[in-house]
Design a protein around this nucleic acid. Structure first.
Length: 467
RNA sequence: UCCCCUGUAGCUCAGUCGGUAGAGCAGCGGACUGUUAAUCCGCUUGUCCCAGGUUCGAGCCCUGGCGGGGGAGCCA
């Protein structure tokens, strides 16, 4: 059909495209009619934040019939020559020789207007919000972080492992789980006690959506050395906050022969790699977030990039909080978990940047974390960042069979349920460590977006699974 | 799940002491020799979240429900 190459808006905006005759395909963001009898059309195709300004001359055969009626949101194919722009604000523009409307968008009923919408309203239009500047930018940053994740771990020699989404283990201990069943909700089979008989279910037992790939990750780490997972994770908690989702994406590296220090260093390198790549490769999007979403964002991220992450043991953190002179709503005491206000003090006031807290009291952490020599704390670590809080949670795992069994007994966990997990300690056990990083949380941190529901394409949370 | 706030035009909101609703933006029409949140003039737009109740009369007061936001807990 067309004689000229189809290029992206991103490419067309580069000065290197000047003089080329090309075709662009995208959506109209705004139309301005000039006094001179021609129109400016701004086209976006998702390839970048900015639009390309297309000058549609009045001489076009369909100028009066089509061009003058183009409205926000319609799809277009335009051809013409890329020229240096006569106006301010853009390097290049297209002088169109043809403007073809592909699909219209009735301005009377198209929800998106040429004005700012609140994120709350946009959430109701999740099928249209990728067409806005903010969500386009979030989408590109999310993509860049995903790509960096694979690049980083691959370059570090980690194998990408696909751990199961459906798990039969009901005791992963990381929160409420969604049950997976094919039993009829009305009148399911029941055992003699009248309870639902899940032995008749699809898998012959209860099954759930995964809350973590860690335990399966350990299986591969104790065979292949260094592995990572990157997939969806599900929590059926009734949590309603700006940093929780029922379905989210998590990256979980697990490495044999890594101790807690290796683990903390890995987390720091990984987070910094993400920041570096996003700042370098999503500069225009990041500029947008810096101007419109979180002033000072870029400068703050650059500081994070340049400074080593502060490492503070739980015990030190308690003493810092006690000496802070701050008035906290919740008391600070050794042995109890840190409250959000405590974490906020540490990241936002005390170090003004990321903090790695480590060696937590065993009582407030999971059974699989390695007991320290003091017999009171475990080799756990959390990475906390300003604004968002915890983005990484991890630990060195308990590799000593007797210690692990003792701990499980203490917590009333059944050996049988974990037979294969315990086998890893029976046969060729090694010290090993890993962590989970919440993809959406690091996107929040990097973009400055306040609500986690606005950094995932289709958020799932209690009472909400539209789209 | 708990605490606080909130729900009025397509969007953002105002609405006094209880007397049947208004502004900006958007849209539509017009004007204007390159605009870029274009500008200027004119016009249109309502299940006042839902269900009860009080009252001569409810957008406003009361009760219940639903939705949204902020904070807390759970965590990534």
């Amino acid at each position: 059909m067309s004689q000229v190459p189809w290029i992206s808006v991103s490419e067309a905006r580069s000065a290197a495209s000047t003089g080329k005759s090309v075709e662009l395909r995208g959506w109209l963001r705004t139309r301005r009619d000039s006094k001179g009898g021609f129109s400016f059309l701004e086209i976006n195709d998702g390839s970048c934040l900015g639009n390309l300004q297309v000058v549609a001359p009045g001489e076009l055969s369909n100028y009066e019939s089509v061009v003058k009626n183009l409205s926000v949101g319609c799809s277009l194919i335009v051809t013409g020559e890329i020229k240096a722009s006569e106006g301010q604000g853009q390097a290049t523009e297209m002088l169109a020789t043809s403007v073809q409307m592909i699909g219209d968008a009735d301005p009377q009923t198209y929800p998106l207007q040429k004005k700012r919408h609140t994120f709350e309203k946009l959430r109701e239009w999740a099928h249209l919000r990728p067409r806005t500047n903010t969500f386009g930018a979030v989408t590109r940053v999310r993509n860049r972080i995903s790509f960096s994740t694979h690049q980083f771990f691959q370059e570090e020699g980690f194998l990408y492992i696909h751990t199961p989404i459906i798990t039969a283990s009901d005791c992963e201990g990381a929160g409420q789980m969604f049950r997976v069943t094919t039993l009829p909700a009305e009148n399911p089979p029941r055992d003699p006690q009248g309870k639902v008989d899940f032995s008749k279910d699809f898998f012959g037992r209860s099954a759930y959506l995964t809350v973590s790939g860690q335990l399966e990750g350990e299986i591969f780490a104790t065979a292949c050395g260094k592995i990572y997972t990157f997939g969806p994770t599900f929590r059926a908690e009734n949590s309603n906050t700006s940093r929780h989702l029922a379905e989210f994406w998590m990256i979980e590296p697990e490495a044999a022969f890594f101790d807690l220090n290796d683990n903390m260093a890995l987390a720091e390198r990984y987070v910094k790699r993400i920041l570096k790549d996003v700042l370098n490769d999503c500069a225009e999007d990041m500029q947008f977030f810096d101007e419109r979403v979180e002033p000072g964002l870029i400068a703050a991220l650059k500081v994070v990039l340049d400074k080593p992450f502060e490492r503070i043991s739980y015990t030190e953190a308690i003493s810092i909080l006690e000496k802070s002179g701050e008035k906290f709503d919740y008391p600070v005491s050794w042995g109890s978990d840190l409250q959000a206000e405590h974490e906020r003090y540490l990241t936002e006031k005390h170090v003004q940047g990321p903090v790695i807290l480590y060696n937590y009291p065993a009582a407030i952490k999971s059974f699989y974390m390695r007991m320290n020599e003091d017999g009171k704390t475990v080799a756990a670590m959390d990475v906390l960042v300003p604004r968002v809080g915890e983005i990484v949670g991890g630990s060195q795992r308990e590799e000593r069979l007797d210690r692990l069994l003792a701990r499980m007994k203490e917590l009333g966990l059944s050996e049988q349920d974990y037979w294969w997990y315990l086998d890893l300690r029976r046969f060729g056990s090694v010290p090993h460590s890993g962590f989970g990083l919440g993809l959406e949380r690091i996107i929040q941190f990097v973009t400055g977006m306040q609500n986690i529901r606005d950094v995932i394409p289709f958020p799932r949370y209690p009472g909400s699974a539209e789209f």
